[in-house]
């Protein structure tokens, strides 16, 4: 597909918006539909689109496999780590209230952090899975 000039140009233009939208979905999740998972999927979709238009090689330059693999783990670790902070602060696991002075604010921070973890894992997982399927030589 990468010899279609129109596609290349349009998608290049589209790309920032896709990632911006993903970020919007990520951070707007508190107020409207959305959250880490949806944002992660959109992020992943953006990468997939990029790979489809510019080829897998180019995509792998942007986001190499071993980087994705690390991100995959980091997401889970970030999520679980946020929970452990609650534990260290003397409360139960995954209690975000202790993250700030005001428990409700703590909850907000906590939710933001774990959604970040979800985003990292989901986006890298989606991209990774696509890479693997698309990258098989026939």
């Amino acid at each position: 597909m990468h010899d279609h000039a129109v596609l290349r140009v349009v998608s290049k233009l589209l790309m920032p918006f896709i990632f911006l939208f993903a970020l919007y979905v990520q951070f707007h999740g508190d107020f409207g539909p959305g959250g880490g998972f949806q944002a992660g999927v959109i992020f992943g979709a953006g990468m997939i689109l990029y790979a489809l238009i510019f080829g897998l090689k180019a995509a792998r330059k942007v986001a190499p496999l071993h980087y994705l693999r690390a991100q995959l783990s980091l997401g889970v670790l970030l999520y679980a780590g946020t929970g452990i902070v609650g534990l260290v602060q003397g409360s139960n696991y995954l209690d975000y209230s202790v993250l700030a002075h005001d428990p409700a604010h703590g909850q907000e921070y906590g939710i933001m952090l774990i959604e970040m973890g979800v985003l990292l894992t989901v986006s890298s997982a989606m991209t990774l899975i696509f890479y693997l399927f698309a990258g098989q030589d026939h």
């Binding site: 783990s73 889970v76 679980a80 929970g83």
Partner: peptide, 23 residues
């Protein structure tokens, strides 16, 4: 103190092993 958190650690320990191992 840690003994009160044993139930969650029971799951977390092997669970966290996985992302560490993947690295």
């Amino acid at each position: 103190m840690i003994s009160t958190h044993l139930p969650i650690l029971q799951v977390l320990v092997p669970l966290l092993a996985a992302p560490v191992l993947a690295l």
